[in-house]
Design a protein around this nucleic acid. Structure first.
Lengths: 341, 341
DNA sequence: TAAAACAAATAAATCGTTTTAGCATAATTA
DNA sequence: TAATTATGCTAAAACGATTTATTTGTTTTA
């Protein structure tokens, strides 16, 4: 267990001041007019012994940790997992590491996690915020921390966010169901006051009422445990046998919905037409394939990281706050097509 | 942007030495026989002003960062995502944060990431190691770092690891196919010298040869890009029309396999019986449901974190190195049952 | 030729903690 | 009563970097 080299060791070995070493290593040799000879000598020696600066000491002094805090709802949810993956790649390429955590949409947990991130001096925050976290985010921003929200935003907090056009997405999907001839169309979604959920509900409602139909909305409490989602879902389906079609508000609910349908031996689209938010393998490979509202995950990740890097590099950029609204893509598959009777 | 309070601010405000504050805050008041009155005063003041120690300074001094580095193959793979999620939960409960990254099974990338983790002074490492990383892991261990491998291990490196009984898993699955009456059974897997892959191949081979059948093994290069997996897979299926059954070596290959079968309009199990390693929604919900080798993800995560915490708390524990081999569960579903002709 | 400017490098302060070693004063022992 | 031991607290060093302010010669300038 060899002791790690410090800058002092280098300085002593070369009989040079550590100040000089530091300047050279930080590319300030020219500016500090340190002779080319010495620069070369130092660089060579550093390479030879494989010295690496202690990033903790560096961070302590400079106040920068080169770390980004990423808070998603649940890292094991395929939507968040794929976004996390893309963000991770791009962050690393720009010299940043990621510390991540799952909030479970739990406000208190999120609060604790934010203060953990703060303690660890992360340089920037990427957050899919739960409800009730407004004050904490605001105080983060007031303290000058770069913050980018995604997947949803906080209406009264002025900060950058990236999300999709949720309202239009569900409006469009609902219209598609109506156009196909379905009339008893339900929306099943998580009970939530989060913006993306409210918009999804509104989009559905707008489409439904524009055609004079009756809105049927089933809200389910957010839960990790699938049983607690499937139970009310099962009750709902059993209790509404005259339903034509269901629009699922999230991929998780959509997946649970498919499981319940399987249990009850209901087939899409004959027994029930189906559309789910988010698109992933389960929906693509299902028989019949499930119509899905595909979010542009790559684009979301790109915007998120780019906006954050902008703010990180140029503090003044924090002033104007950008909101990016991206389009979704309704992947029409047979689960939502009126069976050609 | 209010300046953060430091321990000196607290000391000055109360007219007490910072040493004393530090002792009190670290629960060493009794040991250092500091009067109850003072302890109370300090604790109250600290709570009132909401002082939190700067963890960077703390880490610099103590050499502990309370961070665990987690390296998986790909965080967006459902197997790794769910393990990561479980590990994350348990780590946080024990006061540790997670820094994670995806290795893509790329040795050089992994090497870079290990040195990043080292730089950041993570206290412990959880790694699903790619090939060729033996030396780096060894040097980590030699430097006294607690390391736990999972999902696979490195044969010549003595360290703790958690994995499943891969050999028996594929042996058992193959036997099941044979028992069902299938005879032309292929194994499609990633080309890899990793232990878990070698074992999976061996398990398949053992079962095949024990019955005097012919082993048909298709190895595909590891790739993120699905097209590059699907292309050779498609060629293989087209080129071997007499195949009875396929055992897929990983969930990713399994998913791609299903996509190709969908394209080619092949149905399981009539056209081709199917079993995949790993069990998740895509397989459970598929029509027909896909027989899968389910890994005990919760148990894996529990062992991983427990073994690591043990080593973290008790350096001597590093000496005896544990290998935990867990059982998988073959979830038999209709994709592997000989159609009752 | 004295003053100013420059070149090349460094000493010391700093970031915010923990930890070691030590200092008064009061209480106990012998 | 002098020596010892507790008690309660603190000064200063250390962790390993960056940054500010300074030093010491050497050239230019006027």
């Amino acid at each position: 267990m060899k002791k790690k080299l410090s800058i002092v060791d280098i300085a002593n070995a070369l009989n040079v001041s550590k100040t000089t070493i530091s300047f050279i290593l930080n590319g300030r040799a020219q500016e500090k007019r340190i002779s080319g000879d010495l620069v070369k000598k130092v660089m060579e020696y550093v390479a030879e012994v494989g010295y690496k600066a202690n990033s903790l000491a560096k961070s302590l002094r400079t106040g920068k940790s080169n770390t980004i805090g990423l808070m998603v709802e649940d890292i094991s949810n395929p939507f968040f997992a794929s976004i996390a993956r893309l963000i991770e790649d791009r962050a690393y390429k720009n010299g940043y590491k990621i510390i991540y955590c799952s909030t479970d949409n739990d406000t208190q947990k999120t609060r604790d996690l934010i203060s953990m991130f703060r303690e660890r001096h992360v340089d920037g925050y990427i957050i899919a915020p739960p409800e009730g976290i407004e004050e904490d985010i605001e105080s983060l921003i007031n303290d000058g921390m770069p913050v980018v929200l995604f997947d949803r935003h906080l209406p009264n907090v002025a900060t950058d966010f990236i999300e999709v056009d949720n309202l239009f997405s569900t409006y469009n999907a609902t219209r598609h169901l109506i156009d196909q001839g379905f009339r008893n169309i339900a929306l099943v979604t998580f009970a939530s006051q989060q913006t993306q959920m409210l918009d999804r509900v509104r989009g559905y409602q707008d489409a439904i009422t524009s055609k004079g139909l009756k809105a049927i909305i089933k809200e389910i409490a957010f839960h990790q445990d699938e049983e607690l989602i499937m139970n009310p879902l099962r009750d709902f389906m059993k209790g509404n046998p005259d339903l034509d079609a269901i629009l699922f508000g999230t991929n998780h609910i959509g997946t649970c919905g498919l499981k319940v349908m399987k249990e009850l031996d209901k087939k899409a689209p004959t027994d029930l037409a189906i559309i789910s938010f988010d698109d992933y393998d389960v929906f693509k490979l299902h028989s019949p394939p499930i119509t899905a509202i595909a979010q542009p995950v790559e684009e979301i990740a790109d915007y998120v990281i780019n906006v954050l890097l902008d703010k990180l590099n140029d503090r003044s950029a924090s002033l104007r706050s950008r909101s990016v609204i991206l389009r979704t893509d309704l992947k029409i598959r047979s689960s939502s097509l009126k069976s050609s009777v």
